[in-house]
């Protein structure tokens, strides 16, 4: 598995995403630039300029028509993927930590940071999936997180719920129509921030990663913890692989501690765990800073990771990856 190194960013990567076809990778970084890359060879497709601050988040709609980004310049922006044209800018009081489209691409969600008198909120806009259309300024929903600030959020299947992960390690389920808090559970250790939340392909379950050095799979309906993956390092990201039942975890020593220790013990590796058996099956080295995000190809053909070191590493899985099976899985497959 020889990775392709995307070295187009000048500062730490904050999020990387595949589009639904898996042929394009979008990357955002603290250098204010959004990048788009061909996933199969790492060639740069283009960049999206306009943001005035570090970027925290990116998402692409299911038809690869619209791209949403959010960053430290307190704006959330909508772009046309094909042309790089800025379609819409929404302004806020604080920075945008997370954006995500609903499964049908007709709603866009943003998570705002808590700062200087402004509480953290989750806002939702109705989106017209047409680059020519005028997008609305009106929020269809606004959820205020007064307990603990939201760090990550996303739409469940059919956009019934909005699931959010919080700074205090808890996970909340909101009604996506009314914004009512339905349920909150302390999924991770108290006061250990949830750093990422990524969905399974059908959005009936999701994986959260946390600074408490673990990642967990929760059921969307019940918020029941189904699986727990324990590691020895704070985690920044976790992804679920389609096709094979694996999860990929990324993290490493907090960026501020890195200079005081050797790269050897930074634990800057992508870790593969078996999703069902919760056992570690492998690690991929390469980054020399913590991994800030891992994203999986929607057809499960590869994955890419964005690191604090400013690089995106794109990996295409080899045959042994697909061939590997536990004894009991083989039994199951032969039934």
């Amino acid at each position: 598995m020889r990775p392709i190194l995307l070295s187009g960013h000048e500062r730490a990567l904050t999020q990387v995403k595949y589009n639904s076809d898996g042929d394009i990778i979008f990357s955002v970084s603290k250098d204010h630039v959004v990048g788009a890359w061909f996933s199969h060879n790492g060639e740069r497709l283009g960049t999206y300029h306009g943001h005035q601050g570090a970027l925290w988040t990116v998402d692409v709609d299911p038809t690869s028509t619209l791209l949403a980004t959010g960053g430290a310049d307190n704006t959330m922006r909508l772009w046309e993927v094909k042309t790089g044209k800025l379609l819409k800018t929404w302004e806020f009081n604080t920075s945008i930590k997370r954006v995500e489209f609903s499964p049908d691409g007709r709603q866009l969600l943003g998570v705002t940071e808590k700062r200087s008198g402004h509480l953290s909120t989750i806002v939702v806009y109705e989106i017209i999936p047409d680059p020519e259309a005028e997008q609305t300024d009106e929020q269809s929903l606004r959820i205020v997180c007064d307990e603990s600030k939201a760090t990550v959020a996303g739409f469940s299947y059919l956009a019934i719920y909005i699931i959010a992960g919080h700074e205090d390690g808890s996970v909340s389920q909101y009604d996506a129509k009314t914004g009512e808090l339905l349920f909150n559970t302390q999924a991770h250790e108290a006061d250990m921030q949830i750093t990422d939340l990524q969905w399974a392909p059908d959005r009936t379950y999701f994986i959260t990663s946390s600074k408490d050095k673990s990642a967990k799979i929760l059921a969307t309906d019940s918020l029941e913890v189904l699986k727990t993956y324990t590691t020895d390092t704070p985690l920044n990201s976790a992804a679920i692989t389609p096709v094979k039942d694996y999860v990929i975890l990324g993290g490493g020593q907090a960026a501020m501690d890195v200079t005081t220790t050797s790269a050897r013990q930074g634990k800057f590796e992508a870790r593969f765990y078996h999703k069902v058996f919760m056992e570690e099956i492998g690690r991929v080295r390469g980054h020399f800073g913590p991994l800030n995000y891992v994203a999986v190809h929607p057809q499960g053909l590869g994955y890419c990771s964005g690191g604090e070191d400013g690089y995106v590493r794109v990996h295409h899985f080899d045959k042994p990856y697909f061939d590997f099976m536990y004894e009991v899985e083989r039994e199951q497959a032969n039934l």
Binding site: P62, P103, G105, L158, T204, P242
Partner: peptide
Amino acid sequence: MLKEEGAEIELNGGIV
């Protein structure tokens, strides 16, 4: 459950 709810996109692996 998804079938009952008629969640086509989800059953289709998120492809719209």
